[in-house]
Write a protein that binds this DNA or RNA. Structure first.
Lengths: 163, 163
DNA sequence: CGGGCTGGTCTCTTTTTGGAACCGCGGAGT
DNA sequence: ACTCCGCGGTTCCAAAAAGAGACCAGCCCG
């Protein structure tokens, strides 16, 4: 019950990581984006154990990232990405870009091509005002509204020194 | 010894995840980008146990993501991001964008502002040919050179059915 | 009726984590 | 010289998480 408490910290990197940051969750989502929807398909695609898979799918459904439904045509179960889940795609693509650059000595195993176009999809960190490309050094974090709201709450005192 | 084998698969999402996909690694990197460099500072910032921290820092150094060095001014040790480590920033920013949207009911805890500019940094998935913004539905994976190279190797046979 | 498929559960073993004590080193104070 | 402290680091043990595989009920098909 210690690690899960990180989800209370006022940080938009930490909070998602408590949900997504384990061995399997992002791999499951990768499979989802690749069209995998059924329990057994996830299991054989990834080699995850059935109990673990059950647990992780359940978590993702709880968080509204996947939706569990009985397929229209018959009786089997489907796990499908919700809009919230769909919004995770840039994370996977950011990972892929890095993987292509640093962990693919023989070149990219796959091109993620823009449909009906010659180009490929890549993530970019851009400034929403000037439109320029931005690197880590160009970014300065500043307190935002979610931090004030957090500090206003009583139970916050004990955890001040962490960030 | 099963999970680590995923790193052999020809997939630029899977391979980085074997390194980055656990409870602590991305949180460690987040701290690194925030300027944390010393062993004890990581430990008190995150609440990770010392043995785990030691292990994770060592892994990141092995993978060339962090660099371990004795500080110029004296005797203490520093862990600093390498260029390879720096390149992970878009991943953290993609996570943050999602966190700001879906896990920050009171608004973003922090604004990641473009230095000397009024704007904020955000990740975008764009096509490198037409320049347009791209979503998951607009992307079609196609085999790339890294896949052919992988299939050319002998030990590949047993794992064909996974992806 | 039997077999195979489905998603799902249970139990046992192994692996990974967390927590806390301990260590050697170098520096500062006294 | 002696102690005290902070530093990175290690070791040990208990607790939590993960892996492997058997098992189950429901359903459809033959």
């Amino acid at each position: 019950m210690r690690y899960e408490d990180l989800a209370d910290l006022p940080c938009s990197i930490t909070r998602p990581l408590v949900v997504l940051g384990d061995r399997w969750t992002l791999l499951l989502l990768k499979a989802s984006f690749a069209g995998v929807r059924r329990f057994n398909a996830f299991q054989s695609a990834l080699g995850i154990s059935r109990s673990r898979l059950q647990d992780r799918l359940g978590r993702l459904v709880e968080h509204g990232i996947l939706e569990r439904r009985t397929a229209h045509d018959g009786d089997h179960v489907e796990y499908r990405l919700t809009a919230k889940g769909h919004a995770l795609y840039p994370i996977l693509m950011a990972i892929r870009d890095w993987g292509d650059t640093y962990m693919a000595p023989d070149g990219p195993p796959a091109h993620y091509r823009h449909r009906d176009c010659t180009g490929e999809a890549h993530v970019q960190l851009t400034c929403d005002a000037c439109g320029g490309t931005v690197t880590a050094r160009d970014v300065a974090p500043e307190p935002g509204p979610g931090l004030q709201a957090h500090l206003g709450r009583p139970e916050t005192a004990a955890e001040q020194q962490r960030q």
